[in-house]
Computed example of a mutant assay.
Amino acid sequence: MTANDFRQLALSQLNARVATRLGMIEFLIGDKVFATLGAPDPALATLRLTPQTKPPPSLRCQPRSRRRPVERGRGA
C-alpha cells in the first residue's frame, strides 16, 4: 500500500479530516486522531484502534509485514 493509498483510505472514513503537526500527517474524526502517516519514518503509517475495534479487511496486515516497537514506547 502506498502513502497515497493510505491517505485516500483514511479520508474515506465518515467525517475524517487531515491535519499536519510536527512533520507528520494526522487523520482525525472529531478531535480524535485515528491514524498517522510519516512518523517516525516517512514510509510508516500507524492506526490507533481500541481493543474492541477490528480493522477493515482492506487495512489488515499482510503476513510478510511485521511490527516494529516505537523507541521509548510500548513494547520497546
Rank of each mutant, 00 (worst) to 15 (best):
M1I: 02
M1W: 00
M1G: 07
M1Y: 03
A3G: 11
A3I: 09
A3L: 01
A3F: 03
A3K: 04
N4T: 08
N4C: 04
N4H: 05
N4L: 08
N4R: 11
N4D: 14
D5M: 10
F6K: 09
F6P: 08
R7P: 01
R7M: 01
Q8A: 15
Q8T: 10
Q8I: 11
L9W: 03
L9A: 12
A10H: 06
S12D: 06
Q13C: 13
Q13L: 03
Q13A: 11
L14S: 13
L14Y: 04
A16S: 12
A16L: 02
R17V: 12
R17Q: 12
R17W: 12
V18G: 07
V18H: 12
A19G: 01
A19T: 13
A19V: 03
A19H: 04
A19F: 09
T20H: 07
R21W: 07
R21D: 10
R21P: 03
L22P: 02
G23I: 00
G23N: 02
G23Y: 03
M24C: 10
M24H: 10
M24Y: 00
I25M: 10
I25H: 06
I25F: 00
I25K: 06
E26A: 03
E26L: 08
F27E: 05
F27Q: 02
L28C: 07
G30I: 05
G30L: 08
G30S: 08
D31E: 00
K32E: 14
K32W: 02
F34G: 02
F34A: 00
F34L: 00
A35V: 05
A35E: 01
A35C: 05
G38D: 09
G38Q: 01
G38L: 03
A39Y: 10
A39K: 12
A39I: 10
P40D: 02
P40M: 06
D41Q: 15
D41E: 15
D41I: 12
P42W: 09
P42K: 12
A43Q: 12
A43C: 11
L44H: 04
L44F: 04
A45W: 09
T46K: 09
T46R: 10
T46S: 13
L47E: 05
L47P: 05
L47C: 08
R48E: 10
R48Q: 11
R48Y: 15
R48K: 14
T50V: 04
T50I: 01
T50K: 09
P51N: 06
P51V: 07
P51G: 00
Q52F: 03
T53E: 15
K54I: 14
P55A: 13
P55T: 03
P56F: 07
P56E: 04
P57T: 15
P57A: 15
S58N: 13
S58M: 05
S58R: 12
S58W: 07
L59N: 11
L59C: 13
L59E: 14
L59W: 13
R60I: 09
C61M: 14
Q62M: 15
P63H: 13
S65M: 15
S65H: 14
R66T: 08
R66A: 13
R66P: 04
R67I: 12
R67T: 12
R68I: 06
R68Q: 04
P69S: 10
P69H: 08
P69N: 05
V70T: 05
V70Q: 09
E71F: 15
E71I: 14
R72V: 02
R72C: 04
R72D: 01
G73P: 01
G73C: 04
G73E: 03
R74T: 11
R74M: 01
R74N: 06
A76S: 14
A76N: 10
A76V: 02
